[in-house]
Design a protein around this nucleic acid. Structure first.
Lengths: 321, 321
DNA sequence: CTCATTATGCTCGCGTTGAGTATAACTAGG
DNA sequence: CCTAGTTATACTCAACGCGAGCATAATGAG
């Protein structure tokens, strides 16, 4: 190899200066059961499955799978990386902690009750995110007043305006409309405004902010918000919903799953049109007549789509010219 | 705090089992100069700026900025995380190496020539990615025959079909059309087919594959491909192009920058329409009359948009129902 | 003064998508 | 058996986004 020398130099330089860090793997594992999106938790629903990346892990992904299985007994299927961040103050010692988070999609199998781990509805952690039956009252009654108050306590006029604008944008004030993909921005605003317990934890300022929504260990709720936002974005351009569905399903079941994730309702006829014209599903031949009305055809996901369907939205006027 | 106990337990468990790893920060820094996308490199254009994450780095991002500045003298503006991966065999010792890669966008300032670092056109590394003047001949002449040959050497019929389909999809064969966002998939296919030197490096199989395109150290070219793909996707729904533009510019300059990144041309009138209707820019009042034709108005990016423009494409029939 | 060149405005046509209407096929209750 | 309630499924319509092309304006070079 022609550049052996320089590479060796850089490698040596690197090893001299590198410090040991420890790497944590954290999993946001999602399933949708009975039209409710659920997340796999441990420690009485206050933490996400996680553990250190170890030497005998073949890869980051397999390390994550091993930890999830060890802590919850659950085998993961589809996973994708979410985000990596570093935190010095987590463990207390001098070592820097790096956290690598993943999003996993599965189906909730036998619902075994365990005292330590289990599935929890994700709207328990983010009650303001469920708009399927309209905007939750806590938004107008509790969150918005406190957020706007927080914006207004700022000394600087510019900061005040900036805060108001970010709140208005993230929560769809005025005529902006609710955007379900901004779940992370909303949590971050609540954190910044010290309206969630995680923000004031450790500091002894006494007054815990009484905002609805269950907190989590460390920054796990923030990671969960990241996963929710990612999933809400992704279902719109990739057929990932099917990872959450049973082998056969009706179009309404599929729609309810999407609605559960998005936290809002969709137009039934248009949903069907979209699914069918994209050739995502095929009929199984059977019908379901459980739900009280006309029997629904059962569908299955067309495996063919898996490879090619990586499409990608286009917003630029790209042409062949 | 109510869950101190369990948290302490988990923390202890974690420290017991955690192994030291070293974390590397790797930067894909992009600028567009004279209509050419360029990447900041070190080691005679064969490596990306990188270095270990150290104790005195305040955060991953600041550590990355420090390394880029130390190695190239360049100060970074906008950066975003790309991907994190682990690699056991990189350093040789037992320690596991974690690499965290970032994408940075800037403008190429004073073009100081340095023997060790400098800006390189990114199409030097991926000559098959530039379709601004049509599909590069190397595609039909060299890459496609070899890729299809690779697909056909597979014993198993299923593997053969799978490879052919992936190649056809990634390279837009048949009627599929070229998709500039698949830069990473294309590089990965070339790697899998052992058509890039990086794939056979270290193994003494003698014959280096003579495919156009400059290789890089370790997996740096793969990381560059990741950055290119990310950027090509992102310019379509976020106003990140402006990070690459000077304070004032004409619409054609903006268009040329987008085209340089996308590797394909866009329809001029439609590009203007899109930019203007989104209120992304405002006139400065000046005009430019350098380029031989009617003088062009100069524009600047509207700062107002920064906060709110997080939009997000919608592919689901979301309704208020 | 003419031509080449770039800037800029405007129109057309098609496909996508939000939204609503109409009809079909069931179950439950009298 | 008939009716109301419920869900499934097929169409229709209008607005809008976007690819594509035509037309006109304003320069500099020769």
């Amino acid at each position: 190899m022609q550049y052996d020398t320089t590479q060796a130099t850089r490698q040596a330089q690197r090893n001299d200066q590198s410090h040991p860090v420890s790497a944590d793997l954290i999993a946001v594992v999602i399933a949708v059961t009975n039209g409710e999106p659920r997340v796999l938790t441990i420690e009485q629903a206050q933490a996400l499955p996680s553990g250190p990346f170890e030497l005998d892990h073949r890869s980051l992904q397999s390390g994550l799978r091993a930890w999830v299985e060890r802590q919850t007994g659950h085998l993961l299927g589809y996973i994708e990386q979410l985000y990596t961040f570093a935190d010095r103050d987590r463990t207390g010692d001098a070592r820097v902690q790096i956290s690598i988070s993943y999003l996993g999609l599965t189906r909730e199998e036998q619902a075994e009750r365990s005292p330590t781990h289990g599935w929890r509805g994700w709207y328990e952690y983010f009650p303001w995110e469920d708009h399927r039956v309209g905007a939750p009252p806590i938004l107008a009654d509790i969150l918005m007043p406190r957020l706007l108050a927080w914006a207004d306590v700022a000394e600087d006029l510019g900061v005040r305006r900036d805060r108001r604008q970010r709140v208005a944008y993230a929560f769809g004030l005025d005529d902006r409309g609710w955007n379900e993909e901004l779940a992370l921005q909303r949590y971050e605003l609540l954190y910044e405004a010290a309206l969630v317990p995680e923000a004031t934890r450790g500091r002894d300022n006494g007054i815990p902010p009484a905002i609805p929504g269950r907190p989590m260990t460390a920054d796990h709720r923030r990671i969960l918000a990241t996963g929710i936002a990612r999933l809400r974005t992704k279902i719109k351009y990739r057929p990932v919903v099917f990872e959450l569905m049973p082998p056969a399903f009706t179009l309404l079941q599929l729609q309810r799953t999407v609605e559960a994730l998005a936290g809002r309702l969709v137009h039934k006829q248009n949903f069907r049109r979209l699914i069918e014209q994209q050739d995502l599903v095929e009929e199984t031949g059977e019908t379901m007549s459980d739900t009280g009305g006309r029997p629904a055809k059962r569908f299955r996901f067309r495996q063919t789509v898996l490879a090619e369907r990586t499409v990608a939205g286009t917003k630029l006027p790209l042409s062949r010219a």
